[in-house]
Design a protein around this nucleic acid. Structure first.
Length: 292
DNA sequence: AGTCAGGCAACGC
DNA sequence: GCGTTGCCTGAC
């Protein structure tokens, strides 16, 4: 038993059961998560990172497909990576006569919609505006290292995403020093509003109505349709949310002959792809990035 | 050197 | 309602 793992059970790994197809690598690369780091645990190569304020979690996937995690983390990790999703039921809600979506699923069948803590998801996507993945990752890591709670794990240090009150106290200028540019203002204002309880993320997470939840988030400066939809899809279980970025717009234009934009395009997508449109979006997004 | 990237808000019509 | 423009920053 490794001493640093003593806080969580006996430090041994267990397999998380799941249905259908799951690819840890595709899910980590899918643009939903930006802070997981390669990590070797005993004989297993996997990834480690913080989920909310909890001590770092470890996850690995064997060639057999089996997913391993620390015994005490099983439930948290399974929920986070969507391993409890019933994929057959989700796929059954997709349009049956859509060859593009079919091809996208065949291309990366193992992608899951993750379920992150709402604040770190929202905050990360606020900082993602007009940025590339590598830079989003760099910003996330800087914010974590400067303002997040540090945890020792396996001889390394991992950082939780900083709480709203901490970023609010840091101030806009300090956030700007994390390469945030004009996004510093948005992140700071969001941290202030949420820290002060003016925006209640717990209530938004529980809100059953997608449009009401989205309206609430869009009150925040710097949060438009796209970022609100990302936050709700990747952290609140709102699988009907359909974020439209340049890649999705591209694939809808080139493969579905849709030339409209904005809310019209979104309405069409939700009608076409159904109640789990956001899940379809994730397959299409990955497909578009690789093939367009 | 200039352009562009996984958006948004503010402004003009 | 629509379309246009500025915005921080780093990568190419």
């Amino acid at each position: 038993m490794k001493p640093e793992l003593a806080a969580r059970g006996d430090g041994s790994l267990v397999a998380i059961p799941y249905d259908g197809s799951f690819s840890l690598l595709d899910t980590l690369k899918s643009g939903q998560l930006f802070h997981w780091e390669s990590f070797r645990f005993g004989e297993f190569d996997g990834y480690a990172g913080c989920i909310g304020g909890a001590p770092p979690s470890f996850i690995a996937q064997l060639e057999s497909g089996a997913v391993l995690t620390l015994k005490g983390d099983c439930e948290r990790v399974a929920g986070y990576f969507g391993l409890d999703h019933r994929m057959e039921e989700i796929h059954a809600t997709f349009p049956s006569n859509d060859p593009v979506l079919r091809a996208a699923i065949a291309y990366c069948p193992g992608i899951r919609i993750v379920r992150q803590p709402v604040w770190e998801c929202l905050a990360t996507f606020i900082t993602s505006s007009l940025k590339q993945v590598t830079h989003i990752r760099a910003i996330s890591m800087t914010l974590r290292q400067r303002y997040g709670v540090a945890h020792q794990f396996g001889g390394r240090t991992f950082y939780a995403y900083p709480e709203p009150a901490v970023l609010a106290a840091a101030g806009e200028e300090a956030l700007r020093q994390c390469s945030l540019g004009y996004r510093a203002k948005s992140l700071h204002l969001a941290a202030v509003a949420i820290g002060a309880g003016r925006i209640d993320l717990n209530a938004i997470e529980r809100e059953p109505s997608l449009s009401r939840a989205r309206e609430s988030l869009m009150q925040l400066h710097g949060v438009g349709e796209k970022i609100a939809n990302c936050a709700l899809l990747f952290s609140a279980g709102q699988w009907g949310a359909f974020p439209i970025d340049v890649w999705i717009e591209r694939i809808l234009r080139e493969h579905y002959r849709k030339r409209v934009k904005g809310p019209k395009l979104q309405q069409w997508a939700v009608k076409h792809f159904g109640v789990n449109a956001g899940y379809a979006q994730q397959y299409l997004f990955h497909f578009a990035r690789k093939t367009l």
